[in-house]
Design a protein around this nucleic acid. Sequence first.
DNA 1: GTTGAAATAACGTAAAC
DNA 2: GTTTACGTTATTTCAAC
Lengths: 166, 166
Amino acid sequence: MSQSQPASARSGVVELDAIDRHILAILQRDARIPNTELADEVGLTPAPTLRRVRRLEEEGIIHRYVALLDPKQVGRDLMVVVRVTLDKQTKQGFETFAEHMRNRPEVLECYLCLGDTDYLLKVCLPDLDAYQKFLVDVLAAIPGVRNTASTIVVKQEKYTTSLSLE
Amino acid sequence: MSQSQPASARSGVVELDAIDRHILAILQRDARIPNTELADEVGLTPAPTLRRVRRLEEEGIIHRYVALLDPKQVGRDLMVVVRVTLDKQTKQGFETFAEHMRNRPEVLECYLCLGDTDYLLKVCLPDLDAYQKFLVDVLAAIPGVRNTASTIVVKQEKYTTSLSLE
DNA sequence: GTTGAAATAACGTAAAC
DNA sequence: GTTTACGTTATTTCAAC
């Protein structure tokens, strides 16, 4: 190796050792585990464990800690995936649409995509009535929306936010 | 009201008052907020605040606490949404497929859907090379998979796990 | 049934090594 | 990475509304 920099400095991606990956795997499962317990699980004492967690937070590898709710128990029984195409694909049109989606709390995810579909949305709502209102009052009201195609979710077979770090 | 039971007991959906919803909104933003601070924000003292949080956990309204990572910083630069249709729609075929998806860490979400599409998948991987391997070695290898259509995500315009509790 | 106050135990955190 | 020490927090108990 003639390079003097480590891989992390060259690529911009921070190098993670086995213990870091172990910490991340655990925190992705249980964000509220006490530091002492986390330290036990990864085979370190609390001090260096806490230093690693703080580093992972500061580097932005750990983006945030969140509580996940049960949608059904809070009255969100309907999930819909929507494919959206825009009339004319201008920078302004894209930005307008994305901004609208960011302002709508029922829109959990919004992705700009390759192919026939311009945007993919994941929308979570109480029922079909609320969804119909969303289609008409929100989506159809955004200038430049040509077409939408809705796929209704019947059953959630898997849902995880955990990235496997192999 | 002639009913002797409260609404929560009748519907199976737990009743949430304004403070509960406030707590849930905060914990969905920051799962690691100290209980003392949470108490301040919702206008209670720590003891009753903690009791409410524990109740929300026990009832399963709070499903879990997780750390969300930055996919790019852990080398997961590619996200793909896949529509899958099965050959014959038998109970066994569905269950086999769903079980395969649950065992694949790169599959973050899997939904059984109405309409032309049988399953929708959200898959997160390092690059297109890894995705090609996933298509050939994983998806195509599952018996009963008739057809797949992949939509590649170019940009994540919005991503949240927070449910708005209006 | 829910809250508030006080006491204890557990934990997070920083320093020195 | 370890040990020690300190301040903060979680958690329980019990009294009050």
